[in-house]
């Protein structure tokens, strides 16, 4: 069973103005499959449709056409969401709750039974034991990122969807994230992440998909870029350039 599968997935954003409706294609005819137990990286420039793809997989957006399933369940269904741990690019939390309270809330919403025990373990795991009773309004960016990771792992999900997980992190934090992701993979989890930082993606991903203007232009396994350093970047740039050239020719 595939962790994530999309079939001809299209999302068109409609923005209504006074006299007209503006249409923007988020993704178009996307066919994507993420195998269970792999780390899949979605690469693309800003505005290429990475976040749209993730939101479609989470049910935050509804497809205009096509389908998207998570472990065979319709995306956004409670059965599917039960198996997903999500970390947005910038996690936003309820400022007036403490770290313990917010994690306890998420644990309950995820249907966990031993809430307090689980929360304590996760808080220790991310190194925030001393700050458990502080309101999140007082947390730094790095601490909030750790809470973000903690909440995504709280219910021991099978699939982790991370949107730009290393964005804004310092090199040390990036390494910590890398180590964590590899550790999670070794535990049998599937990780689907999006990024525009090629250097990070090529270090940990088993497979990479390149998104250009909402369409998947190429999917390639690690073996195709592992041979030569910097080759994933070259592949990415050539795909993006080729797409731009095609657009110029069409005009």
């Amino acid at each position: 069973m595939l962790a994530i599968e999309t079939s001809n997935l299209t999302k068109v954003y409609r923005k209504k103005h006074l006299t007209r409706t503006a249409l923007t294609r988020g993704v178009e005819g996307l066919n994507l499959s993420v195998e269970k137990g792999e780390i899949f990286g979605l690469l693309g420039l800003n505005g290429s449709g990475k976040t749209t793809t993730i939101k479609l997989a989470l049910g935050l957006l509804r497809p205009t056409s096509g389908t998207v399933t998570v472990f065979g369940e319709p995306a956004g269904s409670t059965d599917a969401l039960r198996k997903i741990g999500y970390l947005p690019e910038v996690p936003y939390f309820y400022r007036y709750l403490t770290a313990s309270e917010i994690l306890s809330l998420y644990a309950r919403l995820s249907g966990l039974d031993n809430v307090s025990g689980r929360v304590e373990r996760i808080i220790d795991m991310v190194g925030l034991s001393q700050k458990r009773n502080k309101q999140l309004a007082e947390f730094s960016k790095g601490m909030l990122q750790r809470i973000g990771i903690a909440q995504s792992l709280l219910h021991d999900p099978e699939l982790l969807i991370y949107d730009e997980p290393v964005s804004g992190l310092d090199p040390l934090a990036m390494q910590e994230m890398r180590t964590l992701l590899l550790k999670l993979k070794s535990q049998g989890k599937t990780i689907f992440l999006s990024s525009h930082l090629i250097s990070e993606v090529e270090k940990i991903c088993d497979r990479v998909g390149i998104l250009v203007k909402g369409g998947m232009v190429r999917t390639l396994p690690q073996s195709q870029w592992a041979s030569a350093e910097g080759s994933l970047e070259n592949i990415f740039i050539s795909e993006v350039s080729a797409s731009a050239e095609t657009d110029r020719m069409k005009l």
Binding site: L58, G59, L60, T78, D79, L81, R82, I84, Y86, P88, V90, P91, Y92, F93, Y94, Y106, L109, S110, G111, Q151
Partner: peptide
């Protein structure tokens, strides 16, 4: 607007 809703709606909560 603050997107705090994301981390709730991406849980198995109707």
């Amino acid at each position: 607007q603050s997107k705090t809703i994301y981390l709730v709606l991406t849980r198995p909560v109707s």
